[in-house]
Write a protein that binds this DNA or RNA. Structure first.
Length: 860
RNA sequence: GCCUCUGUAGCUCAAUGGAAGAGCACCUCCGUCCUAAGGAGUUGGUUGGGGGUUCGAGUCCCUCCAGGGGCACCA
């Protein structure tokens, strides 16, 4: 997009009325003039508002939602794509006779606003709301069928007071709590992050900085209480959510079942408990390993001699220098230290040395493991590095590359742990059992002795929701001088953010709100003594975890949403958004929905019935960005080609979940197609009255009705690109009928033109509206129900039956579609081409698939 | 390394186990004072490779190759 070479914009972005005279709507397709005609009309009509009682005769309700935008600058091509798809679905359901809720809002709290505000010295409010205004203007031109009466912004006190309400509801139930723990710290944004906001490479999802660990007291939501339901309920979403997202969520929750096992410790009253998925290998335990950064390690070392303690301190310091990513690299050589203490084996009573090593994580399970080097690769690597014993307790046959089993499978020698199936040995009562049999038997034995019990652990951690930044929802808690926590009474909500003027918003590790003296200093609601507000704000993922519910009454002053509306519209039938939210936003939303369900506020417990992930819009194979110089500006494209051509281009580019490379697509081609479609309506208008449709061109009628029959299935399976291709075909067939067939006055041409307008509304609402008007209709095309396909027009008068001999095409026969098998067989065998091909060979079989095919198998 | 998805015309994609197609691009022609967001037509294929099942495979099975995505010291 190197400016300068473009013709000057024919028509300014946010002007809609001026251009009329320069671009009269005539016999030439002029998208700018068409937009100018319809925008003011639509502004008046407010076609897509869903307030008031249901109209008569609707088939039901649908709720179609796009992930709401973050107001950083203007809309971009990614928005154009996602909102285009969402709008296609919304428009489709209206054409099917449903009342459709298709709202829009803004995710308007968050760090970018604050960082931009710091850079420019302006109020984050101002920056945010002016961007929102820009995006609203662009949306108006792009014309998604939003219900603008329900618009919300999460940074409005009317919205975030309900975040605070939600927090208090969860606080009362013990689902919101404070704890002191190692947390992810973003050194650039100077705030904590949730696990979900740390990328796989250890950097912050927001700032890109390498995240470090800090020990801090923070607010958490107890999402782990819901781990089982969040995992199990994914099964019901199979087929309606992208399988990739389901897999990612399952991985993220990471449930694993096994047992907790208690090990007595020499010189300590309390046993140490470890979690294991392999209680069957208990006899193979030769040492224990505790996480160096765990409280347990510190305590155990305290009871060891001085030299050991010093060694441990050195090691801990070393470990904390290693980045989290490096630490989790499985290929890294094992490091560790003996910490001078011993555990006792629960079966043999043998002394087991206790080591510390950074391959054991402090915050998973109990921060300690029983090491079974013979049957766990990590433990084996460690045992070999430090020369610890390896005891095989499972006879696992090992196969060569050629499949022959061999016996030299001693892990201590080969370095390969025996993790497969096998038979228990050296395990007393368990000997002879298979792994699958031994696991429950081992757990039963542990339970009988009181030294173990079944246990389940999760990879999922509780959701850290406090942030040390300004532009977010204040946490509605008051801290007493004695450290007591008091919820702000519901009647005093919202706790509004103080003005940013006078506050230093620069990240410095503590919330800027702490310095807002007038705001932060309050009295204890219980005893009237001086107290302080919690100075932190909530993670903005709290805002977005329930906004889809707020659309059920976005202006309600007394409730988070209207329960009646929730019953009518909820849950979201179709959610559209990027796969980058596969875990974060979608998991949090599912969690909060379940919490609100359990608290009795809604009667469903999954928020999104169906999810569509759109791909990214790329340029020349890579992500668009200003710095790479490959940015395609949405606003420029909109000016050059118009909303319809852009939307058609994005829909036609490929399956919606695939990435689109802008270098591969042709908005000019889309424009050409829309012009061809539009001219069909213009031609029909020009001839005046059309002939009756019953006598119309039969081939064209069949093409029209085949498309009417196929279109719903194509939309419902998100094959938007295929439907556009089919529309192009129908346009071509119709053009041919006009120019070299029945002519524009034929009834079938009008029928095709009307079908085109009705179907095109999914992708090109301006063009469709204009065509509909040219065809003589006054009603808004967007609300017209699609006609049903006539079954009689879906069957051919005659079909071609293919005759093969040994699979090779030998003849074609014109037959009736209702021909019987015997008749078709006789016709095929009588064919001269067939008798020639068969010759005097013996016919082995004749396969008849009436009316389309006969295959004669012969022996040679 | 493990799991998963995808390989069809130059590009993007279709094709209930039954004739390998569409759109775009390319090329040719018509039209136009010059431009085409005009019209008509043509070209284009070892369906990633190899095996198998079947009367018949782009489609089902096995295997290899290539690409995308996810997970990867979570006991």
């Amino acid at each position: 997009m190197d400016g300068g070479e473009h013709a000057p914009p024919r028509h300014a972005m946010n002007e809609s009325s001026v251009a009329h005279e320069q671009h009269p709507v005539g016999d030439r397709y002029d998208f700018a003039a068409i937009q100018d005609t319809w925008l003011p009309i639509w502004d008046e009509q407010k076609l897509f508002e869903t307030t008031g009682p249901d109209p008569e005769g609707i088939r039901g309700h649908k709720y179609v939602l796009d992930m709401f935008p973050y107001p950083s600058g203007d809309l971009h091509m990614g928005h154009a794509e996602a909102f285009g798809f969402g709008d296609t679905v919304a428009r489709y359901w209206r054409h099917q006779g449903y009342r459709v809720l298709h709202p829009i809002g803004w995710d308007s709290f968050g760090l970018p606003a604050e960082n931009a505000a710091i850079k420019r010295g302006v109020d984050p409010r101002e920056w945010t709301y002016s961007n929102i205004d820009q995006q609203k203007r662009s949306f108006r031109l792009y014309a998604p069928s939003f219900d603008w009466s329900r618009v919300l912004h999460t940074s409005d006190p009317e919205y975030y007071r309900w975040n605070q309400w939600l927090f208090l509801q969860m606080f009362e139930k013990g689902l919101a709590y404070r704890k002191d723990s190692w947390v992810n710290w973003d050194p650039v944004d100077q705030t904590v992050l949730a696990n979900e906001q740390v990328l796989a490479d250890g950097t912050s999802e927001r700032s890109g900085a390498m995240v470090v660990k800090k020990k801090l007291t923070q607010w958490y939501f107890r999402i782990t209480d819901y781990a089982d339901r969040l995992l199990d309920d994914l099964d019901a979403l199979e087929g309606r959510w992208p399988s990739k997202v389901l897999a990612m969520q399952r991985n993220w929750i990471g449930r694993s079942r096994g047992a907790d096992v208690d090990f007595r410790i020499e010189g300590r009253d309390e046993p140490v408990t470890v979690f294991t998925t392999r209680p069957d290998t208990l006899a193979g335990v030769t040492f224990l390993v505790v996480a160096p950064d765990s409280d347990l390690a510190a305590e155990l070392v305290a009871g060891a001699d001085e030299a050991t303690a010093a060694e441990f301190a050195d090691y801990l310091a070393e470990v904390q220098k290693v980045s989290e990513v490096e630490r989790q690299d499985a290929a890294r050589p094992k490091t560790g230290r003996f910490i001078g203490r011993y555990a006792l084996h629960p079966i043999t009573g043998e002394r087991l040395p206790i080591w510390t090593a950074d391959y054991v994580l402090a915050d998973y399970g109990h921060g300690a493991v029983m090491a079974v080097p013979a049957h766990d690769q990590r433990d084996l690597d460690f045992a070999r590095a430090f020369d610890l014993p390896v005891t095989v307790v499972l006879d696992v046959p090992v196969a060569d590359a050629d499949g022959a089993e061999h016996a030299d499978n001693d892990p201590a020698a080969t370095g390969v742990a025996l993790t497969g199936e096998g038979t228990l040995i050296n395990s007393g009562a368990l000997d002879g059992l298979s792994k699958a049999e031994a696991i429950p038997a081992a757990i039963a034995a542990l339970e009988a002795e009181g030294t173990g019990r079944p246990a389940t652990t999760y990879r999922l951690r509780d959701w850290l929701i406090s942030r040390q930044r300004y532009w977010g929802t204040p946490i509605p808690i008051i801290h007493g001088q004695d450290g007591s926590l008091h919820p702000v009474p519901e009647s005093e909500l919202p706790v509004e953010l103080p003005p940013s003027a006078g506050l230093d918003l620069k990240p410095k590790g503590a919330s800027p709100l702490g310095a807002a003296t007038d705001w932060v200093e309050v009295t204890n609601p219980v005893d009237g003594t001086p107290a302080r507000r919690d100075p932190d704000t909530m993670d903005t993922f709290v805002d977005s975890s329930w906004y889809f519910l707020r659309f059920f009454g976005p202006h309600d002053q007394t409730r988070p949403f209207d329960p009646e509306e929730a019953k009518r519209w909820g849950p979201v039938d179709q959610y559209v958004g990027g796969v980058e939210h596969a875990i974060l936003h979608l998991l949090y939303s599912r969690f909060i929905t379940k919490v609100l369900h359990d608290l009795g506020h809604i009667d469903f417990d999954e928020p999104f019935t169906s999810v569509l992930n759109q791909g990214m819009v790329l340029m020349d194979g890579s992500k668009m960005s200003k710095s790479k110089g490959n940015l395609v500006e949405f606003a420029e494209q909109l000016t050059e080609y118009g909303a319809d051509a852009l939307r058609v281009t994005l829909a036609f580019a490929g399956p919606p979940e695939d990435d689109i490379d802008w270098a591969d697509v042709s908005p000019a081609g889309s424009s050409k197609f829309l012009a061809r479609a539009w001219r069909i309506a213009a031609d029909v208008e020009a001839v005046g009255v059309s002939a009756a449709v019953e006598g119309g061109d039969r081939a064209l009628r069949r093409a029209t009705h085949r498309l009417l029959a196929d279109a719903p299935g194509l939309v419902e399976s998100f094959k938007f690109n295929v439907l556009v291709a089919r529309l192009m075909e129908l346009v071509n067939v119709t053009r041919k009928t006009i120019d070299s067939g029945a002519g524009a006055g034929d009834g079938a041409v009008r029928e095709a033109a009307e079908a085109l307008a009705l179907l095109l509304d999914l992708y090109a609402p301006f063009t469709a509206a204009d065509m509909w008007a040219k065809l003589g209709h006054d009603d808004p095309v967007a609300l017209v129900r699609w006609p049903e396909a006539e079954p009689a027009l879906l069957v051919e008068d005659t079909v071609v039956a293919v005759v093969q001999v040994n699979g090779k095409l030998r003849d074609r026969l014109q037959v009736s579609p209702s021909i019987g098998a015997d008749e078709l067989r006789a016709l095929a065998l009588a064919s001269e081409a067939v008798t020639r091909a068969v010759g005097d060979a013996e016919i082995a079989a004749v396969i008849v698939r009436e009316p389309k095919l006969v295959n004669i198998a012969i022996k040679r």
